[in-house]
Amino acid sequence: MGKYHLGEFEEIVLLTVAILKNEAYGVAIIDEMESRLKRSVSIGALQTVLRRLEKKGFLTSEFGEATKVRGGKRKRFFSITAYGKKVLTETKEQRLGLWNAIPEFTFSLLK
Protein backbone atom coordinates (compact mmCIF):
# COMPACT_ATOMS: atom_id res chain seq x y z
CA MET A 1 0.00 0.00 0.00
CA GLY A 2 1.15 3.56 -0.71
CA LYS A 3 2.25 6.12 1.79
CA TYR A 4 -1.03 7.99 1.36
CA HIS A 5 -3.55 7.53 3.99
CA LEU A 6 -6.92 9.10 3.38
CA GLY A 7 -8.90 10.18 6.40
CA GLU A 8 -12.56 9.20 6.60
CA PHE A 9 -13.77 12.74 5.90
CA GLU A 10 -11.23 13.22 3.15
CA GLU A 11 -12.43 10.07 1.49
CA ILE A 12 -16.04 11.15 1.62
CA VAL A 13 -15.19 14.57 0.20
CA LEU A 14 -13.19 13.01 -2.62
CA LEU A 15 -16.03 10.65 -3.41
CA THR A 16 -18.59 13.44 -3.38
CA VAL A 17 -16.47 15.54 -5.73
CA ALA A 18 -16.29 12.52 -8.00
CA ILE A 19 -20.06 12.07 -7.86
CA LEU A 20 -20.77 15.69 -8.68
CA LYS A 21 -18.32 15.62 -11.57
CA ASN A 22 -18.46 19.08 -13.21
CA GLU A 23 -20.69 20.68 -10.62
CA ALA A 24 -18.48 20.20 -7.56
CA TYR A 25 -18.19 23.55 -5.79
CA GLY A 26 -18.40 24.34 -2.06
CA VAL A 27 -22.13 24.60 -1.46
CA ALA A 28 -23.03 21.79 -3.90
CA ILE A 29 -20.62 19.42 -2.18
CA ILE A 30 -22.10 20.22 1.20
CA ASP A 31 -25.64 19.75 -0.07
CA GLU A 32 -24.75 16.46 -1.70
CA MET A 33 -23.07 15.16 1.42
CA GLU A 34 -25.90 16.29 3.65
CA SER A 35 -28.58 14.72 1.49
CA ARG A 36 -26.77 11.42 0.95
CA LEU A 37 -25.17 10.87 4.32
CA LYS A 38 -27.61 12.75 6.54
CA ARG A 39 -24.85 14.49 8.39
CA SER A 40 -24.26 18.21 8.66
CA VAL A 41 -21.04 19.61 7.33
CA SER A 42 -19.61 23.03 8.14
CA ILE A 43 -18.11 25.18 5.43
CA GLY A 44 -14.96 25.55 7.49
CA ALA A 45 -14.37 21.82 7.76
CA LEU A 46 -15.09 21.25 4.12
CA GLN A 47 -12.98 24.09 2.79
CA THR A 48 -9.99 23.13 4.87
CA VAL A 49 -10.15 19.59 3.56
CA LEU A 50 -10.66 20.73 0.00
CA ARG A 51 -7.57 22.92 0.11
CA ARG A 52 -5.55 20.18 1.74
CA LEU A 53 -6.58 17.66 -0.89
CA GLU A 54 -5.79 20.13 -3.61
CA LYS A 55 -2.39 20.80 -2.10
CA LYS A 56 -1.70 17.05 -2.00
CA GLY A 57 -2.65 16.79 -5.65
CA PHE A 58 -5.82 14.72 -5.33
CA LEU A 59 -7.95 17.60 -6.59
CA THR A 60 -7.60 20.47 -8.97
CA SER A 61 -9.82 23.50 -9.17
CA GLU A 62 -10.79 26.31 -11.50
CA PHE A 63 -13.04 29.32 -11.36
CA GLY A 64 -16.33 29.31 -13.13
CA GLU A 65 -18.07 32.28 -14.71
CA ALA A 66 -19.30 35.09 -12.47
CA THR A 67 -23.05 35.16 -12.05
CA LYS A 68 -25.54 37.53 -10.49
CA VAL A 69 -26.24 35.30 -7.55
CA ARG A 70 -23.72 34.80 -4.76
CA GLY A 71 -23.04 38.56 -4.68
CA GLY A 72 -21.32 38.25 -8.04
CA LYS A 73 -18.63 35.96 -6.68
CA ARG A 74 -17.33 33.22 -8.90
CA LYS A 75 -17.63 29.53 -7.99
CA ARG A 76 -14.55 27.39 -7.65
CA PHE A 77 -15.16 24.02 -9.26
CA PHE A 78 -13.17 21.07 -8.03
CA SER A 79 -12.43 18.00 -10.02
CA ILE A 80 -10.61 14.83 -9.11
CA THR A 81 -7.19 14.16 -10.62
CA ALA A 82 -5.93 10.89 -11.96
CA TYR A 83 -3.78 10.61 -8.92
CA GLY A 84 -6.79 11.19 -6.71
CA LYS A 85 -8.69 8.54 -8.56
CA LYS A 86 -5.86 6.07 -8.05
CA VAL A 87 -5.70 6.73 -4.35
CA LEU A 88 -9.46 6.34 -4.05
CA THR A 89 -9.37 3.02 -5.89
CA GLU A 90 -6.54 1.80 -3.72
CA THR A 91 -8.46 2.70 -0.60
CA LYS A 92 -11.53 0.93 -1.86
CA GLU A 93 -9.56 -2.22 -2.64
CA GLN A 94 -8.00 -2.19 0.78
CA ARG A 95 -11.39 -2.02 2.35
CA LEU A 96 -12.75 -4.78 0.14
CA GLY A 97 -9.74 -6.90 0.97
CA LEU A 98 -10.48 -6.40 4.60
CA TRP A 99 -14.15 -7.24 4.12
CA ASN A 100 -13.32 -10.39 2.28
CA ALA A 101 -10.98 -11.51 5.00
CA ILE A 102 -13.70 -11.54 7.61
CA PRO A 103 -14.55 -15.18 8.71
CA GLU A 104 -18.15 -16.22 8.17
CA PHE A 105 -19.08 -16.82 11.80
CA THR A 106 -18.05 -13.46 13.07
CA PHE A 107 -20.02 -11.93 10.29
CA SER A 108 -23.15 -13.77 11.15
CA LEU A 109 -22.66 -13.13 14.79
CA LEU A 110 -22.54 -9.47 14.14
CA LYS A 111 -25.63 -9.74 12.07
Binding site: Y25, G26, V27, I43, Q47, F63, R70, G71, K73, R74, K75, R76
Partner: peptide
Protein backbone atom coordinates in the same frame (compact mmCIF):
# COMPACT_ATOMS: atom_id res chain seq x y z
CA UNK B 1 -13.57 35.00 -3.53
CA UNK B 2 -15.05 31.57 -3.91
CA UNK B 3 -15.53 30.90 -0.21
CA UNK B 4 -17.27 34.22 0.15
CA UNK B 5 -19.45 33.20 -2.75
CA UNK B 6 -20.26 29.91 -1.02
CA UNK B 7 -21.07 31.72 2.19
CA UNK B 8 -23.41 34.10 0.42
Amino acid sequence: EDIEGDLL
